[in-house]
C-alpha cells in the first residue's frame, strides 16, 4: 500500500514538473536555450572574440569558468571535498589501522592484469591533467582517474597498502596551494585568484587534480581499513 502511494505520489510529482516546465515562459524548451542573453555570454564572448592573450584563457570554456571566472567557487568546492574526506576520516578513522581483508583471493590474472592496467590508467590520468585546458571537465576527471588506478591496486593485491598518507599530504598541500596561488594573484594584481600569467592556470589545474585524487584515495583508504585487533 505504502509503495503504491509512493509510486503515485512520485509519478504525480514528475508529471507536475514536466507540465510546469512545458508551460513556462521563463523556462525555454529543450534545445532552445538562449544563453547569449544570459550570464554565459560574457564568458563565451571573451573567449571567442576577446582581446585577451590566448594563452591566458583555456581552450575549454568550461575549464575557463571553473578555474578562472569562478575560481572562487572551485576553491569552495575543493574545500567541500576536503572537509568530506576529513569527515569520513573522523567517522571511520581508527587508532591503529590495518588493511581490511577482502572475502576473495585475487587470482593471478587479476593481479597481473590490474598491474598492467594501473600503468595505463595512471598515465592516462596524468595525460588528462596535463591537457586539462582542452578536455571537458578540466582536471577533475584526471584526478579521478589517478584515484581509480590506485583503487585497482587495492582490489588486486590484498597486501597492497601504499603509503597513502603521501596522497593525503598531497591533498592538503594542494588545497593550501590553491589558496597560495590566489594570494599570489592578490599580491601582484590586487585581486584574489587573478589570472595574469598562463602559469597560474596550469598550477591551479594540477593542484585541483592532486586534490581530487588525494581526496578520493583518502576516502577509499578509510573505507578499506579496520582496526588491528
Amino acid at each position: 500500500m505504502k509503495k503504491i502511494l509512493a509510486f503515485i505520489f512520485a509519478i504525480t510529482l514528475g508529471v507536475m514538473i514536466i507540465l510546469s516546465l512545458s508551460n513556462n515562459e521563463l523556462f525555454t524548451d529543450f534545445g532552445d536555450t538562449n544563453h547569449y542573453d544570459g550570464i554565459s555570454s560574457g564568458y563565451i564572448t571573451s573567449e571567442v572574440g576577446g582581446d585577451e592573450e590566448p594563452a591566458l584563457v583555456p581552450v575549454n570554456i568550461v575549464t575557463g569558468i571553473l578555474v578562472d571566472y569562478r575560481g572562487f567557487d572551485t576553491l569552495g568546492e575543493v574545500t567541500v571535498l576536503f572537509v568530506s574526506s576529513i569527515g569520513v576520516a573522523l567517522l571511520l578513522g581508527v587508532a591503529s589501522p590495518k588493511r581490511i581483508n577482502l572475502n576473495f583471493k585475487p587470482n593471478f590474472m587479476l593481479s597481473v592484469g590490474s598491474r598492467a592496467l594501473f600503468g595505463v590508467m595512471f598515465l592516462t590520468g596524468i595525460y588528462i591533467v596535463l591537457h586539462a585546458k582542452t578536455s571537458p571537465g578540466g582536471s577533475f576527471p584526471g584526478g579521478a582517474m589517478i584515484a581509480s588506478s590506485i583503487l585497482i591496486l587495492y582490489l588486486s593485491n590484498d597486501t597492497f597498502r601504499t603509503d597513502v598518507s603521501k596522497f593525503k599530504l598531497g591533498k592538503s598541500l594542494a588545497a593550501s596551494g590553491f589558496v597560495l596561488v590566489g594570494l599570489i594573484g592578490l599580491l601582484f594584481t590586487g585581486e584574489f585568484l587573478a589570472n595574469f600569467h598562463p602559469f597560474i592556470m596550469d598550477t591551479i589545474l594540477v593542484l585541483i587534480a592532486i586534490d581530487v585524487a588525494g581526496g578520493i584515495v583518502g576516502i577509499i583508504d578509510n573505507f578499506l581499513t579496520e582496526e588491528r585487533v
Binding site: L13, M16, I17, S20
Partner: peptide, 19 residues
C-alpha cells in the same frame, strides 16, 4: 522517507502555483 515526503510536498505546492 517522511522528511522526503514533506520536501516533495513543498515542491509540489510550489509547482502547483506555476501550473
Amino acid at each position: 522517507e517522511v522528511a522526503t515526503f514533506f520536501i516533495m510536498l513543498v515542491i509540489a505546492i510550489l509547482l502547483w502555483g506555476d501550473l
